[in-house]
Nucleic acid binder design. Structure first.
Lengths: 201, 201
DNA sequence: GAAGATTGAAACGTCAATCTTG
DNA sequence: CAAGATTGACGTTTCAATCTTC
């Protein structure tokens, strides 16, 4: 397990029975991460497809409408919307452009701060949102919530909350906890480590 | 909890003390899903930023190189690559275009099937991959694996595997398990249900 | 005709620069 | 000058159409 050769080792196909034990432990270690990626990609795609097919809304558009609907007076400042839908400011500007073109939202100047703009949900937008919500709730239940027992959902919520929190702290500054200049980094993800170590004599 | 008014109810601000109990149970029910989205967005962005900054590779490019490297003879058919990196066929064509331009990959005709093309990792590509793998492994450890105890990782892997599986089955056909034509759907995601129910007299 | 791969057109998102207002 | 929002230029990804080979 130490001098892991793995599939990226120098010798093309065999060095000494690599591709069995190493490969297994590698896959096992990376598995949670790849499963996480796969689950996200699949569900997200499903929800998006179903919303488009049944209501002509992308998932991003739906989530924007929902966030606006949840805000007081059904209106929300652009930058706050950006935070809630995980998009850049300019991304939100353009998303709202589309929703305005569809008459689901109106863009109005902010009274208290003339620099600001607010997105206000229209009656038409609310109707569309209500219809789309059925589809979206059904999808989340079908593909996520109803698939898992409550205790597993609890673990996921807690664990991924921890994860999101860890990844959310300042981009720079908490960088080199296990990354040393001389290359004595301490990666523990066995699978890809073979990629790293393979080049060493 | 039944006639939930929620924040999307007809009356602008009050109907009967909505926005406390309803709001709380709504948020609680949706929380695992939103946490899942947030965690994915944050980690993915971090990994991508770090790979770009330290090695000039996007996360997608890195993952493509890795998949090719893991394949026998370090070569992979385009369509197989598409499956493994969760991209469309045309997406992969263009991704490989970039990697070819960077000299990390060569595109060669498939011997056994003249329709096919294979992406072959170059020596330069392997070197870059090895360097980048350090960064990537460090990131996954730092933001994901090392954040969680093993038993939670096990739950996540198992649970999200289940989820990915459920969302991976045929797009059509397994649609209407809890969606009836007359609108008696059974959404259980309390939060957004208020959006749905609010319009009813 | 079906499958593998590529291409053109378009959708969507980001960064950097800009404009306006605080 | 800092903050909110928008715009222009650009990169990436997808869909639909196409070309080639099975």
């Amino acid at each position: 397990m130490t001098g892991a050769a793995g599939p990226i080792a120098e010798a093309p196909e065999t060095t000494n029975g690599s591709r069995t034990a190493d490969e297994a432990s590698a896959a096992a270690h990376l598995a949670p991460w790849r499963t996480f990626l796969l689950a996200h990609a699949r569900i997200t795609r499903r929800l998006d497809e179903e919303l488009r097919a049944e209501h002509g809304l992308s998932l991003a558009e739906y989530e924007a409408l929902l966030q606006i609907a949840y805000a007081p007076s059904r209106r929300l400042r652009m930058s706050q919307l950006a935070e809630r839908v995980l998009l850049s400011r300019s991304g939100v500007t353009r998303l709202i452009d589309r929703l305005v073109a569809d008459r689901f939202v109106e863009r109005v100047a902010c009274e208290s701060d003339a620099r600001g703009a607010e997105a206000v949900l229209t009656e038409l937008g609310l109707e569309r949102l209500r219809a789309a919500a059925r589809t979206h709730v059904r999808g989340i239940d079908q593909y996520f919530l109803s698939v898992l027992p409550d205790d597993e959902l609890d673990v996921i919520e807690h664990a991924l909350g921890e994860v999101a929190d860890r990844a959310g702290r300042s981009a720079i500054a908490d960088f080199p906890p296990d990354c040393t200049p001389d290359g004595t980094a301490t990666p523990t993800t066995a699978g890809e480590r073979s990629v790293i170590d393979a080049g060493r004599p």
